[in-house]
Simulated scan of single mutants.
Amino acid sequence: MTNPYAEVIGDPIAQSKSPAIHTYWLEQLNLTGTYHATHVTRAGLTDYLTQRRTDPDWRGCNVTMPHKQAVMPLLDHLDPLAARVGAVNTIVPENGKLVGYNTDVPGFLEPLQPMLTQSHLFRMARILGAGGAARAIVTALADQGMVIVLAARDPAKAQVLLGEIDPTGEHHIAELGHFAAPTDFAFDDRAGCFDLIVNATALGMVGQDELAFDLSHAPPGAVFYDIVTSPLDTPFLRAARGAGFRTVDGLSMLIGQADHAFRRFFGAKPPRGPADTELRARLTA
């Protein structure tokens, strides 16, 4: 009798909410299988994958920081989207080979789909941060026809990231500190436009400094999106919501990317819609 399982690997890993998400879906679908967190260091990454290759019960793993790029040369094949992003967050054994995928891209876009299905005269995203998380976000939004302003402590790093992912796009670079100070820029009414402001940094997370962002940089009608999940309601989102802006929290992306990974691990579509409400209650209890 087989005992299929999947897992999430990272360093550290105890904080991951992925086991709770996948376990909830397995329970709801009454599927045989388990999902847990496994602590894997950078030094142990090669040995971990070598061991899992020969485990018939292993269905794959999610990959979190700091391994999303380090695992790439250790895999047999990269899905084209993962290759373009330059990061892997899902590994699946397929026909004796280890295949790397990136489900962060569709996961990030999922809560934005109702807005992105509309026609706009212009789309702009201000993305704060140029680290690993930003790679998937830049890829996702560039594919949606958005002009990107990528802000980083090191603008040269942001320039390299944009050049790798969307070299022909008409995007812009800014220093992260630019958005901390007030601006007197006179936005128009932005009718027919879609503006998005994304925190792709760890700022605002438990144990980190707050993200300094002055709301004068937000065009009317902008949507604020924070990928931080602990705390779920960050100061960045609270300030935006208090000023009347729409907000999207980090659980939206986390659950969205897990949906795509779950299908590959367990061959089933997870329960969504009303089930998301109970899942969120579990994750925030």
Rank of each mutant, 00 (worst) to 15 (best):
E278K: 15
L211K: 08
R280W: 02
G33T: 05
L109H: 10
G129I: 00
N30F: 13
K97C: 14
R272H: 13
Q69A: 14
D226R: 04
I173C: 01
V198S: 04
D76C: 08
A240M: 02
H260T: 02
P235V: 01
G242A: 11
S230Q: 14
R238D: 13
K269S: 15
T23S: 13
D79A: 09
D166S: 12
F236K: 07
D143E: 15
R272E: 12
L74T: 12
A125G: 05
Y101W: 13
L176N: 13
L196M: 00
L128Q: 09
L150C: 10
P231D: 05
N199A: 08
H39W: 15
I197L: 05
G169T: 09
L150F: 03
A6V: 09
L283S: 08
L74K: 01
R263K: 15
R263H: 12
L237H: 07
A6F: 06
G96W: 01
A191P: 04
R153M: 04
S18H: 06
G100S: 12
T32Y: 04
G10A: 11
L29I: 03
A6T: 04
V105N: 02
R123A: 06
I227H: 06
A87M: 07
V8M: 02
L232A: 11
F179E: 01
D188Q: 06
V105I: 07
A87Y: 09
R272Y: 06
L141E: 00
H171R: 05
G244F: 09
V105E: 00
R59S: 07
G131K: 01
Q113S: 15
G244R: 09
L26V: 03
P270D: 04
F185P: 03
L26Q: 05
L128V: 14
D259W: 11
N62K: 13
T23E: 09
R53N: 11
L128N: 05
T64I: 06
F236W: 01
D184K: 08
I255E: 04
H22A: 12
A14I: 15
L116F: 14
A261E: 12
S230N: 15
G145A: 09
L162M: 05
R190S: 13
L31A: 13
A243T: 05
R126D: 08
H22M: 09
L232V: 03
A134F: 10
T168N: 13
A261T: 02
L74Y: 05
E175C: 15
